[in-house]
Design a protein around this nucleic acid. Structure first.
Lengths: 226, 226
DNA sequence: GCGCGTGTGAACGCTTTGTGAACGGGTGTC
DNA sequence: GACACCCGTTCACAAAGCGTTCACACGCGC
């Protein structure tokens, strides 16, 4: 997931720690100029704006974000209890708000709720290893930014291997873990799938799946050698 | 203003007093039957559901409200801090939530925010994806400016898929989420509806709904790969 | 060099999905 | 009440996709 836009920079510890605890990457921005300068390639996935210490600046930031070429959704503002009565909904400057003091759980729940509403499936469940990324929700895979067109079994096998980098699996283990516990089939099936995976990974990354002679296969580098 | 639907009946004092203090009229309902029986002539303007003491019943009420002939917006649920981690956004059962203990000001601010978003949002609720647009208020659909003449189930299926672009759904999931929770029917039903949707979308856009072999269907492209 | 283990290409056959058509419940009309 | 129509569902068949298997080639280690 791309990092969230967080204003101001640095944000109060309760927010930065909360985001870290929940596993949301974030980037602090201190000015409107930073918004463009620090923007990730895929755009900001959302914003958290703290309006407690500097409400004027915070809502100006919201306004700027909303008026931008690319509407930045969703926007969560952090306010104090005293600010609640004055909260102005008319301008539609934010999608949700969180009242200080808040628990980390509430922050997480509100972000999950917002991401779900805006359709950006919350934190997509990813399996990543180096240049390789598997999106478990969309059943898509990519390496070095290039999409991989994998069949179902290829995807399942790669997912399993990439979930346990460095570990060696025998063909029998792979058959039982990937294909199913009661599967009864030839061990050569694994070989063929590994071969097709290597081909689709491309010559550059074919080495990601290594053959361990007389044992089985290993994904990625062993942890003991560089 | 017509009274808000409040569940359960009687609601906890913190809620009833809070609503009274803020000047919101409300009616307590204790069962799904009450929802129809006590409905104001202009319909419910919104609902506040307390999920603390009886979460099961509360979310069942949300489900009933959402599945009703007239979608009842907005829905605010009251939860305890412990319930936050388990909050399930996937079913889209509520529009906002408020964590106990809350101040009256927060309740008021959340209701104002919700009413502003749904009430005077002015713009009809749209689901859009590229050239496709669904108007949830008028049950109309269009692609590339061309109106689509969809049947009810076709519309519901397309709405659900387009609301979660990129995500893959199994036929079973689609049956339960689009057709209904207790639906028991053949999975091929989904196939046929997908086929008819593709036909009506036209050859140019038929690819919007992709088959993920051995898994299910996906609408549009995932976000994190282009 | 020999044997075992693995890579490779191709073919087979099952599973999954697409497709056309028919069935049947429900609703509105005459 | 009979009829026609719409639409969701189901069925049967066709087509495609994909996993599996086999036969053979290659290469490493003893």
């Amino acid at each position: 997931m791309e990092p969230l836009l967080v204003f101001p920079d640095p944000p109060p510890p309760v927010l930065s720690q909360g985001l870290d605890l929940c596993g949301y990457p974030w980037t602090g921005v201190g000015s409107e100029a930073d918004v463009e300068r620090l923007e990730p390639v895929d755009g900001w996935p959302g914003a958290v704006i703290v309006a407690v210490t500097d409400p004027e600046g915070a809502f100006a930031m919201c306004r700027s974000i909303r008026k931008g070429d690319i509407p930045l959704d969703p926007v969560l503002v952090i306010v104090s209890a005293e600010q609640l009565v004055d909260l102005d909904m008319r301008e539609d400057l934010f999608d949700d708000f969180c009242v200080l003091p808040f628990q980390t759980n509430e922050l997480d729940a509100r972000l999950r709720h917002l991401f779900h509403k805006t359709g950006r499936g919350a934190r997509p469940e990813l399996v990543e290893y180096g240049e390789l990324a598997l999106n478990l929700e969309t059943y898509q895979a990519a390496i070095s930014g290039r999409p991989l067109d994998l069949t179902y079994m290829e995807y399942e096998l790669l997912k399993f291997l990439a979930s346990h980098p460095g570990k060696v699996f025998t063909r029998e283990t792979l058959l039982s873990r990937v294909w199913g516990y009661e599967y009864y089939g030839g061990a050569r099936t694994v070989d063929v799938h590994v071969r097709r995976l290597r081909a689709k990974l491309g010559e550059e990354h074919a080495g990601l799946i290594q053959t361990v002679r007389s044992v089985g296969y290993r994904f990625g580098q062993s942890r003991w050698m560089s």
